[in-house]
Design a protein around this nucleic acid. Structure first.
Lengths: 341, 341
DNA sequence: TTGAAAGCGCTAACAT
DNA sequence: ATGTTAGCGCTTTCAA
């Protein structure tokens, strides 16, 4: 279809061999400086662009890294991606995305596609369905093929794995502790999707903190929502149906808070006076909610950056690759007016 | 590095030629049905994965499409991308992203990378800097090379081009008209970044609507911000410094509204009683702002879908390619409590 | 029904 | 300083 100029074309033009052209274009010192200049200038003029496909085939490296991610609509995801980009672009790698929409099937297909395209490495943030199903065979396949696989943000339990995650337990503990420190006793939790590691860890952190502070756990105070706004509406309403109403809510993320806050406002409950509310993620927009939202900062950009640095180190020394390595980031409590007026 | 099994390996195993294996794997009817089955099963068992790199080289098609986009942190962008994905994944294509952060240089580099990687086509949402500089030579290069180039959401003025955009003028007109219909007379506009087509079109729509309704244009009522929350804070404050304060604001997008709303709330101005406010984009979260935000829906998913459908049609018939084609989507007014209580 | 050979664009070892 | 050759993994003509 499109007629790209090749080294052969240039060789013909200068009546020399393709290897000479190749060397000249790579500025190889063996080639006469004059020849080099002439060829380089001609190539430039003709808009010659090295065909990286042939290079990939030859060097068995595509300089491409696959990223499998549930969505790109949450700030922590885009921040993570930006963090990764900032490192790997400098190293001459490019990213290829596969968005799973939390579907197991799509995750498998993207992974397959990445393998067929011979990406040099893969980042994965595990789809919710995969966690729930507990089917990790596709990940094991990748590991068997010796392609670096790095779990970011969400991981699964494997004998060996490399992961960069956030200490969700600690984050949840911090959030809950903050509410307790404010004197709240009836603290509800809207947890994340069933079966997802991060959901469970946040629930654990919440439960542990209540226990540590001798606050009885009320099962009615634990509801569930997905990580979006809409799904938070019903569970929040339910929290306020019975006689015993919560005076604080810890939500699985900031979007869930946004949904919950809408319900609270419709019920004319004051935030934070009647109900304090805290989220998780510290989205850039959370500061601009009304009232500004307290949250847990998870340093997603940093996570992406460090995961990518780790990977580029590994890629530059594939013979001494680490097979098992876990970094857990410490989240931070961000206090705003949704908990402290 | 990683030892992928090839057709050669399989050929050796069955003491046949690579061509036979190739044909068997492609289920070519020429090959004995038994042989086919045996080879296919063996390939499956060994986890054979066709090397698409070699195919790309051979068939001069990478089945990859490049997408150049300023960022992936706005909902209209992610929706557009999702729209594109939904179409092209079905057709066996994959996407490759280049995020420009509105930088001209990065845009050029990504484009160059895409050409080196021989993507089959390119979607571009033009970086702000590029619009401002007016340097479109990199786009013309792509066109010269006969690689399909499709502008989405943001385009530039070229003799020939394919674009799928939103009628920003009309959207702005709708928003302004809505405010006028509500009886507002002192309507401010916080416009988008200087030099960006969509900014200018929205400004034009605003101005035209005021003119059509015999409302005098007050230059002090026109401020500027980028498309983010923070940059909206100062201009909004400035709007309320003088004696003559606006009673409505039309912002260049919903994020700008969020920033503006924060300022209004700090000044204890009631929304919409004292100041009505309307945005552009109709982000999924805007419904959950406090108060819920009126906005202009731009149907980004649909735009992505249609642009991708158009492209796949073109790709399947490269000889009869259309070189000049523009689709402009009609935006819709979404009324919520930030303008009507 | 199968095999041999050429070639996609490039690089690199081995000549010269 | 430059040319020759082989090969990365696959498909496809042509031949058998």
């Amino acid at each position: 279809m499109n007629q790209n100029i090749t080294i052969k074309d240039i060789a013909r033009k200068f009546k020399c061999s393709p290897s000479t052209v190749s060397r000249a274009l790579n500025n190889n010192a063996l080639i006469n400086i004059e020849t080099r200049k002439t060829i380089q200038e001609y190539a430039q003029k003709m808009g010659y662009e090295k065909n990286t496909i042939s290079l990939s085939l030859l060097q068995k490296s595509t300089k491409t890294i696959g990223v499998i991610i549930p969505s790109i609509s949450h700030s922590h995801e885009t921040l993570m991606i930006n963090g990764i980009q900032s490192v790997i672009n400098k190293m001459g790698y490019m990213l290829n995305f596969g968005i799973t929409n939390e579907k197991h099937q799509l995750e498998k297909e993207h992974l397959k596609r990445f393998m067929a395209n011979r990406v040099d490495a893969i980042f994965v943030s595990v789809a919710f369905e995969t966690s729930k199903l507990g089917d990790f065979s596709h990940f094991k396949d990748i590991q068997k093929r010796n392609v670096p696989l790095i779990f970011i943000d969400r991981n699964v339990h494997l004998e060996e794995s490399i992961s960069f995650t956030v200490n969700d337990f600690k984050g949840a503990y911090l959030a809950t502790k903050h509410l307790i420190d404010l004197g709240r006793k009836k603290i509800a939790h809207i947890k994340g999707p069933e079966g997802l590691n991060v959901s469970e860890m946040r629930l654990m952190g919440y439960l542990k903190c209540l226990k540590d502070h001798n606050i009885e756990i009320n099962p009615n105070f634990i509801k569930q929502a997905d990580f979006d706004i809409e799904s938070a509406l019903l569970p929040t309403s339910q929290l306020f149906e019975s006689e015993n109403k919560p005076d604080a809510i810890f939500c699985s993320n900031d979007y869930v808070c946004l949904g919950a806050m809408k319900v609270l406002q419709e019920k004319n409950l004051r935030i934070p006076e009647d109900v304090a509310i805290i989220g998780f993620d510290n989205c850039p927009i959370s500061e601009f909610f009304y009232p500004p939202l307290s949250s847990i900062e998870r340093k997603s950009f940093l996570l992406g950056e460090q995961a990518a640095s780790f990977l580029t180190d590994q890629l530059s020394d594939m013979d001494n690759r680490v097979k098992d390595y876990r970094t857990v980031f410490n989240p931070e409590l961000i206090i705003r007016k949704s908990t402290v007026s």
